[in-house]
């Protein structure tokens, strides 16, 4: 009888110890996960309309390079970054703005004038002047920005 009660007490202590241990582990573990993945879950910063420059710089029928400076807050550091955009117009009124980031693996594409094509040096991805896929491993056309023109100034919607 006495022996049996001893055993029960021991079992209780064992279970209680495990339970408290698991509780502490979870109390540490769950915040730790939130802590680690926190910045990954943060929504990408929106930049609003970014001014590229005057529309008079855009050559008819040829993708023209524009650079714009943006300020990006990464963690505790504010970085000034340069974004590069190719702008194409066929009629001087309607503009398309394309990102120069290759849709394959993120290298930067270049406009090769002689061949009338965008070329990506990393894996030989080729795009036509409107950003459409021509050759190589690229999965989709170049990404486009939303464009607006105000007082002959070209703006893109940064995101």
């Amino acid at each position: 009888m006495d022996d049996k009660q001893q055993l029960k007490r021991r079992d209780f202590m064992s279970i209680a110890t495990w339970a408290i241990g698991i509780l502490i582990g979870a109390g540490m573990g769950l915040p730790a996960i939130a802590y680690i993945i926190g910045p990954a879950l943060r929504e990408d910063e929106a930049f609003g309309w970014i001014r590229l420059g005057s529309i008079s710089k855009v050559e008819l029928g040829i993708p023209t390079l524009f650079k714009a400076k943006i300020e990006r807050q990464t963690g505790w550091i504010v970085n000034e970054e340069e974004i590069t955009v190719y702008v194409l117009t066929e009629n001087g009124r309607d503009f398309i703005a394309m990102s120069n980031i290759c849709t394959h693996l993120g290298c930067r594409v270049r406009w090769i004038k002689d061949q009338d094509q965008f070329f990506c040096p990393c894996h030989n991805g080729v795009f036509n002047k409107a950003g459409g896929v021509v050759a190589g491993p690229v999965p989709r056309p170049l990404d486009r920005f939303e464009v607006k023109v105000e007082d002959d100034q070209l703006f893109i919607l940064g995101g």
Partner: peptide, 26 residues
Amino acid sequence: YYVPSPDQAYASVQYITTQVPAGWLI
């Protein structure tokens, strides 16, 4: 998150405390 450099140490600690989820707790 912590960076042991004079120009970033303080800011990175502030970032941990105020921006990172559960950073204040850790």
